[in-house]
């Protein structure tokens, strides 16, 4: 799906936990997520901490969208 979005002309960032799969399939901008059952956040934190973490991840995803890439790139910290 990521590739079809990109092929349609829309820049896309894949936020996912298992980044090797994303690389194999062919996403170009990849942001590693927190965990499989909670990609964007951490329910072990309190409500605020969880939301803050989610915000940081979304900011990172937006930053990836604003970064030129020539090839598949995983945006680590």
């Amino acid at each position: 799906m990521v590739k079809e979005v990109e092929r349609a002309g829309i820049p896309v960032v894949h936020v996912c936990t298992v980044t090797p799969i994303s690389l194999t399939v062919g996403a170009n901008r990849i942001v590693p997520a927190v965990g499989i059952p909670y990609p964007l956040g951490d329910p072990n934190l309190d409500v605020e901490g969880d939301k803050k973490l989610r915000r940081q991840l979304v900011e990172k995803a937006l930053k990836a969208l604003q970064t030129e890439v020539e090839e598949q790139t995983v945006f680590e910290d």
């Binding site: 990521v2 092929r7 820049p11 896309v12 996912c16 936990t17 059952p37 990609p39 937006l62 969208l65």
Partner: peptide, 17 residues
């Protein structure tokens, strides 16, 4: 994606578990 383009979407965040 056709719908997204038609609706003026210019960026996508795609999340996977």
């Amino acid at each position: 994606s056709k719908k997204l383009v038609a609706d003026g979407v210019e960026a996508v965040i795609l999340t996977s578990t």
